[in-house]
């Protein structure tokens, strides 16, 4: 009989995330993958500035806390220094797609052999619900009180589509954690990212469509429903790039 327990590579302490937030699920998926691959002792994580800023308390592997947006540059420094170790970043949408766009794009185009876990919840969570680069048109946030007007605030950034155009990107997939089936698919994608890194193929990114019930002003159930009804149509799920597939052909 399978006993449900926390992954070994996840600290046995309560998470600080809000009820209904997807961060806890994604943390768990990353740790399950680390456990299954048996690589906790040879992994260095890089955590961001944002709601996951204290992830160093939750991941039992070694962790370096990066400045806002700089995680891919920090990960580059680590990976180049100790290339035989697994290095992953865990970043939100403000961190990766706004202030850290340059670091993300250039680490991808260099083909840095790192895995990026990218949480897209269309909002700045930690600072209390401001517009993110991924905020949908019409979405109300603290800094788009009348709804995001693309004429003023521009359009949302589709990171997987953008990053997949770069030659150095080995793997890019967008997943969601709104249902058990999608959660299983998300875990498979994260595993794939780490496998791509293990094979030394280059940059891998897993974009995870996530909830933020607190800052969306919704119940957790309604938040999950929003992922399905509003986010997935704008941010289609799927594999955007997979060089292991093209190698098979």
């Amino acid at each position: 009989m399978a006993v449900y327990k926390k992954p070994e590579s996840m600290a046995d302490i309560p998470l600080h995330f809000c009820p209904g937030c997807s961060h806890g699920i994604v943390h768990r998926l990353v740790c399950e993958v680390i456990d299954e691959m048996g690589i906790e002792g040879e992994t260095v994580g890089v955590c961001p500035v944002g709601c996951a800023v204290t992830s160093y308390n939750y991941f039992n592997c070694d962790v370096v806390a990066a400045a806002h947006g700089r995680a891919p540059a920090v990960a580059t420094g680590i990976k180049r220094s100790i290339p035989d170790r697994f290095v992953f970043t865990y970043q939100g949408d403000g961190d990766l797609a706004a202030i850290g766009t340059a670091e993300a794009v250039h680490s991808a185009t260099r083909g840095e052999n790192i895995t990026v876990i990218f949480i897209n919840n269309t909002i700045y969570g930690m600072t209390g619900g401001q517009m993110a680069p991924t905020t949908l048109p019409g979405q109300v946030t603290q800094t788009t009180p009348f709804g995001r007007d693309p004429k003023v605030a521009g359009y949302p950034v589709r990171i997987c589509e953008l990053i997949s155009t770069l030659t150095g990107t080995a793997y890019a997939e967008r997943v969601s954690v709104d249902s058990p089936a999608h959660i299983n698919a998300a875990k498979k994608a994260i595993r794939k990212g780490f496998e791509v890194q293990k094979a030394g193929l280059g940059f891998s990114i897993i974009e995870v469509l996530s909830t933020c019930p607190t800052n969306w002003g919704m119940t957790p159930v309604a938040a999950v429903e929003r992922v399905r009804s509003e986010m997935i149509p704008y941010y289609p799920l799927g594999v955007y790039k997979d060089i292991t597939e093209s190698e098979k052909e």
Partner: peptide, 9 residues
Amino acid sequence: NMVYGAASA
């Protein structure tokens, strides 16, 4: 920040 990463390692 790359220096920061390398120094961390």
